[in-house]
């Protein structure tokens, strides 16, 4: 699957991410204990377990139905900061996937960008604030650039994943200016951001699933 992301492939991505979150739940929570309130892993895990249990209800639906289900489920089961933000990501993607059963690479890129824009509009974080944006935005930029350079989707996603990883790693040195970590001021420096870490995992699952 290199030409377009099918309905089936998209569901594989969601399932892979749910599995990755389950695997990294404790690690994400521990990151959040260092500079937040120790719930990011539990939040994401609760949300994606709910998503898994509801996936059958949209088995017949298109990509928009799938993404909407994910977005609405995250919105109503995650809570905290990550619920509305990841929820918005998928709801925005759903808007770009209306009536579609597959997304061409450029359509996928546009959908993801709409999702990122939605997160920025809601959370008002800028790059460098030590949030999930610091993983998502570099990934998005790398994805667009690679596609513009006619790279294949798998290669473009590989580059996006790498950019997300670098972005995640760069958050370690940052002083947080948004979210709970910002209350720590300089004490937030030296720890990677939990949300950037879960965001990198999302890109990593895409790169791994859509080869």
């Amino acid at each position: 699957m290199t030409m377009a992301v099918t309905r089936e492939a998209a569901e594989q991505w969601i399932r892979a991410y749910a599995a990755a979150i389950a695997e990294h739940e404790q690690a994400l929570t521990q990151l959040d204990m260092a500079i937040g309130d120790g719930d990011h892993g539990a939040n994401m895990h609760r949300g994606f377990q709910a998503v898994l249990s509801r996936l059958p209800t949209v088995a017949e639906g298109d990509l928009a139905a799938l993404f909407k289900l994910v977005g609405m489920t995250l919105l109503s089961t995650v809570g905290g900061t990550s619920g509305p933000l990841y929820g918005t990501l998928f709801l925005q993607m759903a808007l770009r996937a209306q009536g579609k059963h597959e997304l061409a690479p450029e359509e996928l890129e546009a959908a993801l960008r709409a999702g990122l824009d939605g997160i920025i509009a809601r959370g008002k974080a800028a790059p460098g604030d030590k949030t999930m944006i610091d993983a998502l935005k570099p990934a998005q930029d790398a994805l667009r650039q690679a596609l513009n350079q006619q790279e294949s989707l798998p290669e473009a996603l590989r580059q996006a994943e790498e950019a997300a990883r670098k972005g995640r790693d760069a958050t370690t040195a940052m002083e947080a200016r948004k979210g709970r970590a910002s209350y720590l001021g300089p004490r937030s420096v030296g720890h990677p951001d939990p949300g950037a870490t879960s965001a990198h995992l999302l890109m990593e699952c895409a790169a791994r699933t859509w080869v």
């Binding site: 120790g38 609760r46 919105l75 109503s76 809570g79 905290g80």
Partner: peptide, 11 residues
Amino acid sequence: PGPVFTSPTPD
């Protein structure tokens, strides 16, 4: 009420 230390949800 949300989960412990986690905001409740819009619904």
